Amino acid sequence: MGRTMRNLFVAGCVVLWLVPLYLLIVNALTPAGGYTGEPDWLPGDFALLDNMRTAWDEAAIGDSFLNSLLYAVVCGAAAVVVAAMAAFAVVVLPLPRPAAWFWLIYSGTVFPLQIFLAPLFGLYADANLYDTRLGLMLIYAAWAVPFAFFLIRNQMTTMPPEATEAAMLDGASFTRIFWSIHVPLLRSGLGAAFIFQFTAVWNDLLFGITLTRSPEVQPVMAALTTLNTAYSASGPPVILAGALIVSLPTLVIFLVFRGLFLRGVTATAR
């Protein structure tokens, strides 16, 4: 009985997730001029490519798509490197009060992002970082570090200390121990952390609409809101086609690196 209820619950969750996805795809196929105002439950004409082309051109999703790709790759990678160094310092180096350092860094995930917006906006305006790629990349990288640190530190605590001790006896510096021993052994955890941070940066809307205004700097989620407002006359099929474009990179990243992701999540959960 328990297994049956569990299977029914899982099946219900799958249906709840698949129905909106199905409606998104079916209505993105509908020609923009032929949309009646009611969602279509069955596919009709195939106008997906035309709707995608309209979304790509009218709302400048193409430029914003490349912006978000830059932000997600660079900031995700930078956050993982910084987080790995911080985790190495907390776990391996003889720091006083390592638990206090852990909670200090990890506390960056505790507070809601909204409380930082007002002071951050004023700081960015004074420093001429508002509406710049550099300004957005700085906040994305800083925002991504705490959770990446949490994942990598958890995996690093499972590593046997004998490897580090043997390297120290051979005269290896902490820098060489980090890059030659810990980084190769942490490959799955680093990959999982990067996928998490890539997805978080890619899906960000809050900082994108607060710290930018020009299409040349905006991330793709902010451009999608522009498509939903300024270009709403294009019709829901075009907006849904834009949403489909935006969802593709994270889906591709997960499908390509799912093995690395699952190994990394399993390793960090031990």
Rank of each mutant, 00 (worst) to 15 (best):
residue 124 Y to M: 15
residue 127 A to Y: 15
residue 96 P to Y: 04
residue 137 M to K: 02
residue 120 L to G: 11
residue 162 E to R: 05
residue 177 I to E: 01
residue 165 E to M: 08
residue 146 P to H: 11
residue 111 F to G: 00
residue 176 R to E: 13
residue 166 A to Q: 07
residue 168 M to A: 14
residue 133 R to C: 11
residue 185 L to F: 08
residue 101 W to E: 02
residue 185 L to H: 09
residue 89 A to D: 06
residue 166 A to L: 11
residue 143 W to L: 08
residue 170 D to F: 01
residue 165 E to D: 14
residue 108 G to E: 07
residue 118 A to G: 00
residue 169 L to C: 05
residue 102 F to T: 05
residue 183 V to P: 12
residue 183 V to Y: 11
residue 143 W to D: 01
residue 152 I to Y: 15
residue 117 L to V: 13
residue 125 A to L: 09
residue 104 L to A: 13
residue 136 L to S: 05
residue 94 P to R: 09
residue 165 E to N: 10
residue 176 R to Q: 07
residue 163 A to Q: 13
residue 109 T to Y: 07
residue 146 P to M: 09
residue 158 T to Q: 15
residue 129 L to V: 03
residue 174 F to M: 06
residue 171 G to E: 09
residue 144 A to F: 05
residue 157 T to V: 15
residue 121 F to R: 03
residue 124 Y to N: 11
residue 87 A to T: 01
residue 159 M to V: 12
residue 180 S to Y: 06
residue 151 L to I: 14
residue 110 V to T: 15
residue 115 I to Y: 12
residue 162 E to L: 12
residue 103 W to V: 04
residue 114 Q to A: 11
residue 87 A to I: 00
residue 106 Y to F: 12
residue 185 L to G: 03
residue 178 F to P: 04
residue 124 Y to A: 12
residue 123 L to Q: 15
residue 184 P to Y: 12
residue 93 L to W: 09
residue 114 Q to T: 14
residue 153 R to A: 10
residue 144 A to W: 13
residue 93 L to C: 00
residue 102 F to N: 07
residue 89 A to K: 01
residue 153 R to I: 02
residue 142 A to C: 09
residue 149 F to Y: 15
residue 122 G to N: 13
residue 114 Q to E: 14
residue 163 A to M: 15
residue 98 P to K: 01
residue 116 F to K: 01
residue 172 A to C: 09
residue 161 P to E: 14
residue 163 A to N: 08
residue 156 M to T: 00
residue 106 Y to M: 04
residue 158 T to F: 13
residue 96 P to T: 05
residue 146 P to A: 08
residue 110 V to S: 07
residue 103 W to I: 06
residue 117 L to E: 03
residue 106 Y to A: 09
residue 91 V to D: 15
residue 169 L to N: 07
residue 155 Q to C: 04
residue 142 A to I: 04
residue 176 R to I: 06
residue 160 P to R: 09
residue 155 Q to M: 15
residue 170 D to E: 12
residue 118 A to H: 02
residue 140 Y to M: 05
residue 178 F to Y: 09
residue 99 A to I: 07
residue 136 L to H: 02
residue 153 R to S: 05
residue 175 T to K: 01
residue 92 V to M: 05
residue 111 F to N: 06
residue 121 F to H: 05
residue 162 E to G: 02
residue 110 V to D: 06
residue 147 F to S: 13
residue 139 I to L: 13
residue 101 W to Q: 03
residue 178 F to C: 00
residue 171 G to M: 05
residue 108 G to N: 06
residue 150 F to E: 10
residue 98 P to V: 03
residue 121 F to L: 13
residue 118 A to M: 09
residue 166 A to T: 07
residue 144 A to E: 10
residue 108 G to A: 11
residue 95 L to M: 13
residue 135 G to I: 01
residue 147 F to N: 13
residue 135 G to V: 08
residue 100 A to Q: 03
residue 112 P to N: 13
residue 87 A to W: 00
residue 156 M to R: 06
